[in-house]
Design a protein around this nucleic acid. Sequence first.
DNA 1: GGTAAATCTTGATCTAGGTCAGAAAGAGCC
DNA 2: GGCTCTTTCTGACCTAGATCAAGATTTACC
Lengths: 253, 253
Amino acid sequence: MTMTHTQSRFNSTLTSQCQNCSLSALCLPIALADEDINRLDQIIERKKPLKKGDFLFRQGEAFDSVYAVRSGTLKTFNITSYGEEQITGFYCPSELVGLSGIDSNIYPVSAKALETTTVCEIPFSHLEELSSQIPSLKHQLFKVMSRKISDDQQMMVLLGKKNADEKVASFLLNLSTRFKKRGYSASAFRLSMSRGEIGNYLGLAVETVSRVITRFQKSELIHVDGKEIEIIDFPEIQKLVGVASDCGKIANI
Amino acid sequence: MTMTHTQSRFNSTLTSQCQNCSLSALCLPIALADEDINRLDQIIERKKPLKKGDFLFRQGEAFDSVYAVRSGTLKTFNITSYGEEQITGFYCPSELVGLSGIDSNIYPVSAKALETTTVCEIPFSHLEELSSQIPSLKHQLFKVMSRKISDDQQMMVLLGKKNADEKVASFLLNLSTRFKKRGYSASAFRLSMSRGEIGNYLGLAVETVSRVITRFQKSELIHVDGKEIEIIDFPEIQKLVGVASDCGKIANI
DNA sequence: GGTAAATCTTGATCTAGGTCAGAAAGAGCC
DNA sequence: GGCTCTTTCTGACCTAGATCAAGATTTACC
């Protein structure tokens, strides 16, 4: 294993890199004490950037690491029985990719860069070991995985019950929320994925995505210029989504 | 907390109950040493059975425990913005319910019994604490959550890409696999959920589920008698599913 | 900077599965 | 055993979104 080698190349500064990272408030280190961040920092390897279209890992490969996105965007996808791609998620900075590989020790999906993307590689065996020593890190890991489970379930609701307008509105609002959390504008952002990829992810044909976006633009819910999106009428978009995003707070049957 | 009280009532025998449980080979204790099973056993509370229609927990309630199903079946579901139910999962014996509550400390779904059902309540804070002391338990927990993530992603593929026949075939095959793992017949079993609930889960109308099942019966893929299902032509059902279930082994692009 | 390839848009048509309606078969319940 | 309530089945119709087709625009690459 050449890890120490690579580490010395990337981690040569004395101060923790995680501590300096603008994403530390969102990524794993949240709620860690300074000395613990340093220990986490030791096991993390900063990889050189992926170019658009590069694979981070491929479906079927041996699982050994999870990855935190530092910049750029990734998509994960399955190849279905007849060779078509099914996108299962998009990953923005501070988000963790690869957690689904823990169970079988094999990545059940492929991960590919949608644009130039940098990631931190976190060897899972080290992370697991460290999590025994740092309870708050373990808790954080459980939380991240739990969050992924409930997010995926929201996605199942979207795929199973929503119509095209609701799907696209949910998608835009979801991105908006994620950008906002990271300190970027919640109303204006750039889509790093193609219309085709959006459709694939949402269970819609490309043409439908295009038509819905055009329609939203005409009804002045959003303003579109190619991949640049500006959400103009938040209340209306939220109404379409059904504000199901926080239905945890809604009264029960 | 009245736990010790309740424990003494349910856990009074000296031998570990987990150890005697027929599900221990599938549930959390897998890969645990005897003394560790005993420690896990101490924190588990066997609850009295739920009757059909009883809630185990409700969307929005404070999260404090995960539950292992001992017998019977549960469904979890969201209430969407306009009051309809969206089923996000069915849970059979040995399966763990409630993991999605860890992140927000609130159950993001409700869980309801489909028939008389017994569960083991596992207070999460205790489980988490114990997992620090027993690395294999921690690993097992990570695996269970990871498995849930990849299963849910398979479900997203199903909802986003499959047609009605493929959805129903996948559903039947999935149940079959789960029953088999537990030592029951893989080919003949009883559906504990209604056609309506199947449709809800698969993103189909009741009528469509009914029609597909009838069609499968006519083409002699399955034999149906009310809720009793017998899978007759496994190869054909698998062909419909596309054997996408183990596409992890398929070559990557 | 120019050309080929990919992506996006828009219109016209088609269809899988939804919706509506009613009959048949179970499941509780007194 | 009869009554009601729920679930399941089946047929007739309809619609949201897929598919097909063909331009328009963007992106990538020499």
